[in-house]
Design a binder for these strands. Structure first.
Lengths: 304, 304
DNA sequence: ATGATGAATCAATCTACCTTATGCATGATA
DNA sequence: TATCATGCATAAGGTAGATTGATTCATCAT
């Protein structure tokens, strides 16, 4: 069914030589020596079994066979050039980000607008799920992960520590005359008191913790819902501070104390080591790090 | 204007891998190892900046980028395959033979018919001229030359020695009661007595030569005309014996003596060393040598 | 004549590619 | 559940083939 392919390196050389009608010029274009061009052409001619060029005094010219072959070769190579270019460019058109649900809804969603402004040609596709993506088997460019920052073969950039701290609405705080010390919180409804984060935080704050229910595993994924309840004034939530800097800035939530708990995790930008220099990844990384920096900077720790 | 070409070796591998959706199968098709395929794909992916395959458990599958690229690559490679195939085949369609005028008209013309019968798909184009073709600057596949058989870089096959000997028509011979010894010729008109071949031949035949006009250079190129005159009974011609074996066989000429002159030349089939194994050249060479052998064999030296 | 240009050739070098060997993950099988 | 089979990735190493640099040769221009 399929005839053999010609030696492709020689084909590339032939194309250049045919276009220039000169081995020397072709060598220049290809960044090699005239000798190498001569060698490759000879090779191709031997494979074909017929000369491709007539060696005239001051220039070479195509034989009939060469004339017949040159346009087809040019077409084929142009096809390849196009396909290659679009593959490289096409890859730049869409950036797929695998993010944690909490990060997507509480941070990325609000900030992506500025990214689009800065890079209007690059569409961002969010892939929101909490499972650990495997870059080798899913079409994902970068991921936001929380954890210790140790993933072999991955390039990682820390976005912020997963510090958690109580949050509540200004209205709720006012209802008891303001929240001035940790003990004040005990007079308010605690949202999801089973979350181990509470235990950790209250002990850091020097408060008794024995009254708290004990339940393994934090409710991480549900932070958005708790925060919503807190903003509605239904109680005090304990959430990752950095994820709600916008709400604090807007006055919808207050962080009454600097005291934070931390279970050793942080949020990270992660992508395969080998793709460090891919344009769209570089662009996103630079933007994200700068944006995170800014969003942490302009909300002082105590915004109450 | 022109974007860069992708690494072509990798492209060839990609095409196979995409078609098979398997690196292992691709490796088989290409006659290399799975490791080599893996290497080339990885190389291409790095150049493109995006994965081309998703590595699923028991098989690989194309990413979006890969899916987009595969058909274009397939098209391009098919173009190349076609161009290559026609270049190889097209070269086989026509065989250009540069021949000496005398050989073309006195030998080739009569024998080419059998070549066409044996190889109906191969058209022979005769390029009849007496100048020494330069294979590097003219589109010629093989040449018939006369000379010493020493041409550097050329493959040569001797067809026959350029023995020359007198020839005349049977009628003319009969007009003097038959030609039995060299001296008998002196009673007949000698065609072109200035040809040095006569001098050489008569001296070999033990006859005086001082009566012959002296002129440098033989009339080689005019042998066909002299032979025609001889056949018409106008005199005795001295010509290259082997070129007229057909006329002897047909009884239109007779070669009265075995005695031949020879100036050291022979007729040769010549072609560039490097093209020894080109199919059409091999075919022509084999046919020509066999045909010459036969044409010399079935005309005994003395056909009078 | 003389020099300039462009290709062929040769020997020496180098490097990109391939192979071998191995490891790893996943499905299939018992 | 343990074992086996399959398929890809990776590392190390060797080699063929490509490339270079120097030279030659032929031709054309001055």
């Amino acid at each position: 069914m399929s005839s053999p392919l010609p030696p492709l390196a020689a084909i590339r050389v032939f194309d250049a030589a045919a276009r220039h009608a000169s081995f020397t010029k072709a060598a220049e274009e290809l960044g090699m020596t005239q000798a190498a061009v001569s060698y490759q052409i000879k090779l191709l001619e031997e494979r074909i079994g017929a000369p491709l060029f007539l060696r005239r005094p001051r220039q070479v010219s195509l034989t009939e066979v060469g004339q017949q072959m040159a346009p087809a070769v040019a077409d084929a190579l142009n096809l390849l050039r196009d396909a290659y270019a679009t593959a490289r460019g096409g890859a730049q058109g869409i950036l797929t980000v695998s993010t944690l649900l909490t990060f997507a809804s509480n941070w990325l969603a609000q900030h992506l607008g500025s990214f689009h402004l800065a890079h209007p040609t690059l569409a961002v596709r969010l892939d929101t799920s909490n499972h650990l993506v495997d870059f080798t088997r899913e079409e994902v460019d970068v991921a936001i992960r929380s954890g210790g920052g140790e993933w072999p073969g991955m390039a990682v950039h820390k976005l912020f520590d997963a510090d958690f701290t109580p949050m509540l609405s200004p209205g709720l705080a006012a209802s008891i005359g303001g929240v001035h010390e940790p003990a004040d919180l005990l007079r308010l409804p605690i949202l999801d008191p089973g979350d181990p984060w509470w235990r950790e935080w209250f002990s850091r704050a020097g408060q008794p913790v024995d009254w708290l229910a004990e339940r393994p595993g934090s409710s991480m994924g549900a932070q958005a819902y708790e925060a919503r309840a807190a903003m509605a004034g239904q109680g005090v939530a304990i959430v990752t501070r950095a994820l709600f800097s916008a709400e604090i800035a807007e006055g919808r939530l207050i962080q009454p104390f600097d005291i934070v708990g931390n279970d050793g995790n942080a949020y990270w930008l992660v992508y395969p080591e080998g793709r460090r220099n891919v344009a769209k990844i570089r662009v996103f990384r630079d933007w994200l790090l700068a944006e995170v920096e800014a969003s942490l900077g302009n909300t002082g720790p105590r915004a109450a």
